[in-house]
């Protein structure tokens, strides 16, 4: 709730007096930031902007929800398939010059 309220009050520069990013710059780097691929310096500037800007803050929240929902679809591959492939791999590892199942 406090975060939401803070975003309603625009602050043109962050507390450290660093050059704050505007919405366009944040829009360009937001995805990298959410993927953990932004540099620490950029991430700090984005975080400061997200605290201050209602629109960008909501945008980031939405993408976080999307990413979380997508990640929830990460299921292990079928165990029987995995087991067959591991057996096949082991068989290959033990073979020298001959391929499993080739003869």
């Amino acid at each position: 709730m406090m975060t939401f309220l803070r975003r309603l009050i625009p602050r043109p520069r962050n507390a450290q007096g660093e050059r704050a990013l505007d919405c366009v710059a944040v829009g360009k780097t937001l995805q990298r930031y959410l993927d953990g691929a932004a540099t620490a310096e950029t991430a700090a500037l984005i975080e400061a902007h997200l605290e201050d800007c209602l629109r960008c803050g909501l945008e980031a929240d939405t993408y976080r929800r999307i990413k979380a929902a997508l990640a929830s679809h990460r299921v292990p591959p079928p165990s029987d398939s995995l087991e067959r492939l591991r057996d096949f791999g082991l068989e290959l590892a033990r073979s020298h010059g001959t391929k499993p199942g080739s003869g």
Partner: peptide, 9 residues
């Protein structure tokens, strides 16, 4: 190779 089979799948 063997440790990467799951990622490959």
């Amino acid at each position: 190779v063997l440790p990467e089979i799951e990622v490959l799948l």
